[in-house]
């Protein structure tokens, strides 16, 4: 969300004043702290309403019965897993193209959130699969793709932290995120192909007929809750990332000031 908020401005290469508006960490921080209370409020409200509808005010499915309630935490997590990777790739691309410090920080702050959502999608999917399919895990196309997505997140996070110089890690990881984003359609295609070759028998398709309104309400509420949760956590983490880089800059300045005797400051 936030990375999208920067992008339209970053797109206007001609209006360079606008382009650099949010590239300035301090100005970006001000924007972030303006958005944060709203995101927090929306997150808490929709979570409360969503949970109420998901657990009390929605009927059991006639086929999956009560287990359909897992859908309300599972499907939004899967959506967010993909949305976060899109945000990660978009922020990484703008970090590479325009060298925006802030884009780097948005990408770095997004990665753990996306990884957490991916992990949740996998785990809750597994908990849904056990009563529905009779097994914790099937090598079905969607599960396999999400598992691979999780590995892509892990690669990004590990590469980001693998260098002594944090800015090098950020740049290397940005390239990886963009390469991964180009590769994702190919992975999806190959996993679908592989799955039609080795179709596991007796899998109940989870996407049945069109969803009834009584189930759509909790689903959408939870989707809004997850999205605003992402924005809230992103605001916190981006601020922490900006702090970290400020601390590093201050420490470097201090070391250079104290080590050089003729630098009289």
């Amino acid at each position: 969300m936030l990375s999208q908020a920067i992008k339209p401005h970053a797109m206007q290469v001609k209006g360079s004043a606008k382009m650099h508006r949010f590239a300035n960490p301090t100005r970006f921080l001000r924007l972030v702290s303006a958005i944060k209370p709203w995101a927090t409020g929306v997150c808490l409200l929709t979570f409360a309403a969503g949970l109420y509808f998901a657990l009390f005010a929605s009927p059991p499915d006639y086929q999956q019965r009560e287990t359909v309630r897992i859908m309300y935490v599972h499907v939004p997590a899967a959506w967010m897993a993909m949305f976060c990777y899109a945000a990660l790739a978009a922020a990484s691309a703008s970090a590479l193209i325009w060298r925006h410090l802030v884009a780097d920080m948005v990408a770095r702050a997004t990665a753990p959130i996306g990884a957490a959502f991916t992990l949740l999608a996998l785990a809750t999917g597994s908990l849904w699969g056990k009563p529905m399919w009779g097994t914790w895990w099937v090598w079905d196309a969607r599960l396999t793709s999400v598992l691979i997505l999780f590995f892509l997140y892990l690669g990004y996070i590990v590469l980001n932290g693998a260098f002594d110089d944090a800015s090098r890690g950020a740049r290397a990881a940005s390239i990886l995120a963009v390469v991964g984003a180009i590769n994702i359609p190919i992975i999806k295609f190959s996993v679908d192909w592989w799955n039609t070759l080795h179709q596991p028998a007796s899998v109940v398709k989870l996407d049945g007929p069109a969803i009834h309104m009584s189930m759509l309400t909790p689903l959408l509420l939870m989707a809004i809750a997850y999205t605003s949760f992402y924005i809230w956590i992103l605001a916190i983490r981006v601020r922490a990332e900006i702090n970290t880089s400020k601390i590093r800059a201050l420490q470097i300045r201090r070391v250079t000031a104290s080590d050089v005797p003729w630098n009289d400051s």
């Binding site: 657990l55 059991p60 019965r65 009560e66 287990t67 309630r69 897992i70 935490v73 599972h74 997590a77 753990p112 959130i113 957490a116 992990l119 949740l120 785990a123 809750t124 908990l127 849904w128 056990k130 009563p131 949760f229 809230w232 956590i233 916190i236 983490r237 601020r239 922490a240 702090n243």
Partner: peptide
């Protein structure tokens, strides 16, 4: 309807991971 353990495990895990992430982020900040 007999599916309680799976449903509560899914909701509990979601709560655990999301709250854990929020706490970790707040402490980071």
């Amino acid at each position: 309807d007999g599916y309680g353990q799976f449903i509560w495990a899914a909701y509990g895990l979601t709560a655990f991971v999301l709250i854990g992430l929020a706490v970790q982020s707040l402490r980071f900040q």
